[in-house]
Design a protein around this nucleic acid. Structure first.
Length: 1137
RNA sequence: AGUCUCGUAGCUCAGGUGGUUAGAGCGUUACACUGAUAAUGUAAAGGUCCCCAGUUCGAGUCUGGGCGGGACUACCA
């Protein structure tokens, strides 16, 4: 953008055109050179803080446009609070640990997790992770700068640094001391083939869930006869069974319970076991009977059943609720081993039991299912884990007949050769045992167990079942659920406080806090901290080998002390490899693992090899960013809790949760008072942006091409941040054109005339001076209303409303009404009190708008402010004033709105009649119902007259007798009283004549007869409108009616001609590149009409076009032809020297 | 599968506590304006307010049930 008047630095800068990216560059350079960000913090008092926490991004991926979104939100509230005089420090941070980093490095090296420590030393692997994680730091820094996100990138917290980890250790120690940290085990996805647990992240890799066919079985669990179960033993039945379905028969040896639904209805059914042909009694959910029995079976006589029949007779003997089955015991199905850790082999109730599949009775193997595990815990049930970590049955599964012991529970774990060998074994054994003479194909353990059950009369049904089953994304082998040791934070112990304190947080939007987050808290489980990876914060726990003694280390100093003890005890030499170049203990694997401590009883203690969940890293940032609780107690206290944080909704159960948990667990406090969770950014068609689809918006391109402000403004104004947003570049361009363009034009207009008049504001105080006109008072009133609204919106974290309110003001009020109606005041004549008022009013509006937009559009706001105030002054160091309610005049705003709407109506009439605005008309008519209304119009009459170019406005009221009125119910008022009678009243009012209405108005009430019943209408219960003036050209909208007199006389025609002529000459001046202030001479070839027009309006014409003289001539050369309504004139325009 | 959320014009979005003719901007079409001019204005066309039922004198708005999109959590016999 080239400044046109660069030679005159004391003038307001004027430019050729608006180009936002150029403004970005200039302002960025200026900010950098003058340290504006630093000043915006340091200029605010330490005693008045607004605390913001930056959620650390991971720099091992490239930033996307959605980061611009969340960072715009963060930035704008921080800037706004600065504007209000708060000190807002913003410490940047980097999230550096975690699986994505490791996976990235694995990919680079072409290795797998199992190779780490084998093909590449752990130390080397972690060194690569450390380098890799900061790979795109410079890109992030650049985006941060370019988008105008003010955050202190020079002193970020970095989660892999020793000091940060030390803080984490101290916090873990605090949890440990509070009894909130414990070791336990849970059922986790586990890949025996890879020998490792899998995270949910890994399980959600594409292709992990596959449809596979497995053997399913409905097993029969024989009920123990006792008082509880007595009612099931009818007809002298000696064997009654529960039916339970499973798709993983290999878990049946580990069964320790059955679960039923409390409110589900179960049936006791008499039928045949189709394999043994014995009559049996079985229990299953009534709803699911049709799955196993055909209708004919219900009536089929029992003695007609023959071996192999498709139809099986059955009878429903009795029904009961699941609750009645609770506590009933049964014989262990496959008694290879006995649980030692609790009760077993009984029926419990569970919410998770449904009747969509199976039998409505769920087989519970606590070691191999999350629900099972939970149920077992709730009911104090014992467990059996008859599978080892390699995925093989343990030695305990020692079947006298079938080869199960030591066999893989999933045949996919066998190699082909192994499988073949196993097949031979099976064939031999089954032949020896006289079960299958000549086995044809390999049998999985599922097959074998099903066969065993069949032979033992414990199988009701088996079939192939296709379902979705997770597979290990590295080995392609099925995953099993398996109990693994982990360290947990006992979040369930503080659940009530988590919920109670959450209610004191303001969530934007509220439903994220109450719903998504609240729900999550209600269903809280303990937080599994353990991760069995390499690059992360090590768990600071050392244990003796027998597990009897545990130490949780809370600081480096404590660790040093413990090492000294260990050295004295001779367990360490001190020369082990656990220090980095600086001589500090390196708090990463494998270094910390080289440290062996000594227990109180003199035992060796080794570190538990686990790392902790990376979310602990980020959730601990309120403390660890200051190296608290090791040091900086005071800094921490000043900055806790945060006033404001913001991230995407995907962080609800991530960062927001861990922040909350740690604050509540450690300090019984919230970590943040206000949180904005923004939605997703989708492409313009509503699809997720992905590299694969090629619909990713590059934030750098967007900012480079359209400017940071346009991007920010668009993101904020388009929809509430918490909605998912469709990003459309066309919408962004529209923002540039309509908002920034309009504001720029308004400024250009101001600068153009203020420079001509050499106008400067008298003082810094933003108060209009001079002789204020009604329009000035009006725009000032609107400005203060805006100030009030926008301040409130920002304070309530409603940025979209703020942006839209500003847009509306700039476009509709300032540009399209105030400036448009006032143009003349700016360019007419010499400086005057009136002109002074106009300048200072417009100036004040622009200054305030610059401030109000500065949080969202920091660059353009700065540019505008500096243009108005001078090159050295920053809007971001300014203070936003509080709206002055004394300057707000609602009645004036209402009047002006009336004028705007009346103008719009009259213009639409002119339009309809094709009469241009330049043609004056004699009068407009406005019907008024009362004095008040008339006075309202009167006060803005002048604007209407000049805007629509009529000579006068006449008001017609009742007395004129020419307006037609209409009455309709005021539904809101009348509805309260009339209720069901509304319809009838509406009907009655529609039939009112003018006379009825007049009588109503005169008497102040009206009694209707509704079906013979009187109903007295009050004036406030109806609306009386003028609708028509018969015989006139009328327009009506929203209760306003106007009529226009379109008859023309000569006088009006000549005036119209004069204006038309002026307009054409002005165009000629422009075509000829005359300066605004150049004087001209106009020669016109003789023309009758024009001669008369000139005679009547010479003064006016000359004034308008700055003509020294206007002459009619007989001959003219070198002329221009102009159209003056119906006449074509030959005109010569010359500049006077 | 559960939880949350969204569904209004071709597109992007407004529509406190229910009030009868549902709005704006963009886009389209037509026209106008012209000392802010690569700006601006006016108007027209464009809607089963996702569907169904209910509450009510009256439902885009409240209730219930569906359908569809999205997010998160889970993956279960």
């Amino acid at each position: 953008m080239v400044r046109k008047n660069a030679q005159q630095p004391d003038l307001y800068p004027e430019y050729d055109q608006l180009h936002l990216p150029t403004i970005d560059r200039e302002i960025l350079a200026w900010w950098d050179a003058n340290g504006i960000f630093e000043k915006s913090v340091s200029s605010r008092p330490e005693s008045k803080r607004f605390v913001f926490y930056e959620g650390p991004p991971s720099a091992n991926g490239m930033p996307g446009i959605h980061h611009v979104m969340s960072r715009t939100i963060k930035d704008l509230f921080c800037r706004f609070k600065t504007l209000q005089g708060y000190r807002v420090e913003r410490k940047a941070g980097w999230d550096t640990h975690g699986l994505p980093v490791e996976l990235g490095v694995e990919k680079q090296l072409g290795i797998r997790k199992s190779d780490i420590g084998v093909k590449i030393p752990v130390a080397e692997f972690n060194r690569l992770c450390r380098e890799d994680v900061m790979r795109y730091t410079h890109v992030w820094n650049e985006l941060t700068r370019l988008m105008g996100y003010w955050v202190d990138m020079d002193n970020p917290y970095v989660t892999y640094e020793n000091a940060y980890i030390e803080s984490l250790w101290a916090l873990i120690r605090m949890l440990y001391d509070k009894g909130l940290l414990y070791e336990g085990y849970t059922i986790q996805p586990y890949s025996p083939a890879a020998g490792t647990g899998l995270s949910s992240h890994e399980l959600n890799q594409p292709g992990c869930y596959r449809n596979v066919k497995d053997v399913s079985a409905v097993a029969m669990f024989r009920i123990k006869r006792d008082e509880r179960s007595q009612f099931l033993f009818v007809d002298n039945a000696d064997a009654v069974y529960f039916l339970a379905w499973t798709t993983t028969p290999w878990t049946l040896p580990s069964n320790t319970a059955l679960a039923v639904g409390k409110d589900i209805t179960y049936s006791l059914v008499k039928t045949y076991n189709v394999y043994t042909h014995q009559i049996v009694y079985v229990v299953l959910a009534q709803e699911l009977m049709q799955r196993y029995f055909t209708d004919e079976g219900a009536t089929m006589p029992f003695d007609e059943y023959k071996k192999g029949d498709k139809k099986v007779p059955y009878r429903e003997v009795l029904t009961c609720k699941g609750a009645a089955l609770e506590g009933i015991r049964y014989d262990q199905l496959l008694p290879y081993a006995q649980p030692k850790d609790g009760d077993a082999f009984k029926v419990v109730t569970g919410d998770f039991v449904t009747t969509t599949d199976g039998t409505g009775i769920v087989h519970i193997a606590p070691s191999f299912g999350a629900d099972d595990f939970k149920t077992a815990k709730q009911h104090g049930l014992g467990s059996l884990t008859l599978v080892d970590k390699q995925g093989k049955f343990t030695e305990e599964v020692n079947d006298p007949v079938f080869p199960l012991q030591g066999r893989y529970v999933k045949d996919a774990y066998y190699t082909e050769a192994e499988k073949q060998a196993e097949f031979e074994t099976q064939k031999r054994i089954l032949k020896e045992k006289n079960i299958i003479a000549d086995l044809r194909s390999f049998m999985s353990v599922d097959d074998l167990i099903v066969l065993k059950l069949k032979l033992e009369g414990k199988l009701f049904l088996t079939e192939k079942y296709e379902h979705n089953y997770p597979h290990c994304w590295r080995t392609d082998k099925p995953v099993i659920y398996y109990p693994l040791n982990s360290w947990f934070v006992r979040t369930t112990a503080i659940k009530d406080r988590l919920i109670a304190l959450n209610k004191t947080i303001r969530w934007k939007p509220p439903h994220t806090g109450e719903g998504r987050f609240g729900q999550w808290l209600e269903n809280l489980v303990d937080w599994n901290l353990s991760r069995s990876r390499f690059w992360g914060t090590p768990l600071p726990i050392w244990k003796t080998e027998d597990g009897s003694e545990v130490k949780c280390i809370g600081s480096l100093k404590e660790l040093e002390d413990e090492i000294h003890k260990a050295i004295r005890a001779g367990l360490m030499t001190g020369s082990e490899n656990y220090r980095n170049e600086k001589g500090e203990i390196e708090l990463h694997k494998p270094y910390v693992d080289a440290i062996v401590l000594v227990s109180a009883k003199g035992q060796k203690m080794y570190r538990v090899p686990d790392l902790i969940d990376v979310w602990f890293d980020s959730g601990a940032m309120p403390y660890a960013q200051w190296h608290y609780p090791i040091t900086n107690e005071d800094v921490f206290r000043q900055n806790f809790p945060a006033d404001f944080i913001a991230e995407g909704v995907d962080q609800t159960r991530g960062w927001f949760f861990t922040l909350h948990v740690l604050a509540v667990a450690l300090f019984d406090s919230i970590a943040f008072k206000n949180v904005v969770s923004n939605g997703l950014l989708l492409d313009k068609n509503g699809n997720k942006m992905s590299k694969r689809l090629g619909n990713v918006i590059d934030p750098f391109d967007t900012i480079r091409n359209h400017g940071a402000d346009a991007t920010r403004w668009y993101l904020i104004r388009n929809s509430d941040p918490w909605e998912n947003m469709k990003f459309d570049i066309n919408g962004l361009q529209e923002v540039v054109r309509s908002f920034f363009g309009t504001l720029y034009n308004t400024y250009s207009f101001f600068a153009l005339y203020a420079n001509i008049d050499h106008w400067k504001p008298a003082s810094d105080k933003l108060t209009a001076k001079g002789q204020l006109q009604e329009l000035d008072l009006w725009i000032i009133s609107r400005l203060h209303t805006l100030l009030q609204e926008v301040t409130e919106y920002y304070d309530q974290y409603e940025p979209t409303r703020a942006a839209r309110a500003i847009e509306k003001f700039v476009d509709e009020d300032l540009s399209n009404w105030y400036v448009r109606l006032n143009r003349r005041r700016f360019w007419k004549g010499e400086m005057s009190e009136d002109k002074e008022a106009a300048y200072s009013t417009l100036y004040e509006c622009l200054i305030t708008v610059a401030q109000l937009i500065s949080p969202i559009a920091p660059f353009f706001a700065e540019w505008l402010y500096k243009n108005l105030k001078g090159p050295g002054i920053s809007v971001h160091l300014s203070y936003l004033r509080v709206a002055d309610t004394k300057l707000i005049n609602k009645e004036l705003e209402e009047r002006m709105e009336l004028a705007q709407r009346a103008c719009s109506l009259i213009l639409s009439l002119r339009k309809k009649e094709k009469i241009k605005v330049r043609q004056p008309l004699s009068r407009a008519l406005i019907p008024v119902l009362n004095e008040r209304q008339k006075n309202l119009y009167r006060s803005v009459e002048a604007y209407i007259i000049s805007e629509v170019n009529v000579k006068k406005i006449e008001y017609v009221d009742d007395t004129s007798g020419i307006i037609r009125k209409k009455v309709k119910p005021n539904f809101k008022e009348l509805g309260k009283r009339a209720g069901p009678k509304m319809k009838a009243i509406q009907q009655a009012l529609a039939n009112f004549t003018d006379a009825d209405i007049r009588r109503f108005e005169q008497q102040g009430s009206y009694t209707l007869q509704l079906n013979g019943e009187p109903f007295e209408l009050q004036p406030h219960e109806v609306e009386i409108l003028t609708e028509d003036i018969p015989g006139w050209l009328v327009a009506t909208e929203g209760g306003i009616t106007v009529a226009l007199d379109i008859t023309l006389n000569d006088e009006l025609r000549h005036e119209g001609n004069a204006r038309e002529f002026v307009n054409k000459v002005q165009n000629l001046r422009k075509d000829k590149d005359f300066q605004v202030l150049d004087r001209i001479k106009v020669s016109v070839l003789k023309n009758e009409t024009f001669a008369r027009t000139l005679a009547a309006h010479q003064q006016y014409i000359a004034n308008e076009i700055l003509a020294r003289e206007i002459v009619l001539v007989d001959q003219l050369s070198d002329y221009d032809e102009v159209e003056m309504n119906d006449e074509i004139l030959k005109v010569k325009v010359e500049r006077c020297s």
